[in-house]
Amino acid sequence: MSAVREIEYRDALREAMSEEMRRDKRVFLLGEEVAEYNGAYKISRGMLEEFGARRVIDTPISESGFAGLAIGAAMMGLKPVVEFMSWSFSLVAADPILNNAPKMLYMSGGQFGCPVVFRGNDGAGGQLGSTHSWCVEGLFSNVPGIKIAIPSNPYDAKGLLKTAIRGSDPVFFLESERMLGNKGEVPEEEYLIPFGQAKVIRSGTDCTLASWGRPVHFCMEAAEEMQKLGISCEVIDLRTVRPLDIGTVVRSVKKTGACVVVDQSWSFGSPGSEVASQVHRHCFDDLDNYVHRVHSADVPTPYATNLEQEYLPNARKIAEAVRSATYNL
């Protein structure tokens, strides 16, 4: 067994891409500032040097164009990885990523798949305001034909991204600028993490906390707080929302009888509401209370610090929801 190292989330992403590019020449990376600038967030640092300009490609600010180009290339049998500097900018590419990629296989009767990975920063950064703070899983998880991964730590980020690149279907890979510098244990040896497998990252008996991406960390904080009050929380990191491993959540709720879903996207028609709905269905007789949800406030993202903090899910709000769900208010 080799030594376990700690690396940053951004390094985990780069390792996943580089390893897959080494093993498969069909894989290439394109996006704004990914090559010569080493990536706006330095995720692709050094990749131009290793793979050259034919495989690590700087694009103009033309999201619709290069997203569509990647889809065409994927139909041709290549395996593009497209970096959106932010998922907020993917909205100008809505047609290719939502109308082409997810439907190509279906509407061609199985003839043309789209093995393309779109990846980039998702969610509020820090006072980036209304246009730059999108949690696109709220929108995009509604669309059949896309797989969506939202890893919360370096280990998952690497394993899931390798799976995404190696797969044969379109994947939306949602990272968070706020987590790129987070360190975590990532083994030297190769591993892949299958989609649709949630992970119980803290076990408990009184309330199930289900989340994905950055808010998982807020859940862990809240669970710690709750422990002090004698409320034992089980925290589940879903890791992918499409496919959704509802089984792991259901098994937990059957044990705890209470559930709080934490989702940074808006509440209306969200992955959070989907999880809650499924838990209600499968755990109807096990729940002592309805499934509580913590989301961003149902307004555009504000700029001012105090408003943004109140807008976003946080440990305090999660704790409040846990207390309510477990009748400990």
Binding site: Y290, H292, V294, H295, E310, K317, E320, A321, S324
Partner: peptide, 8 residues
């Protein structure tokens, strides 16, 4: 505000 974000 607390009512907007938490389904209590």
């Amino acid at each position: 505000p607390s009512m907007r974000t938490i389904d209590t």
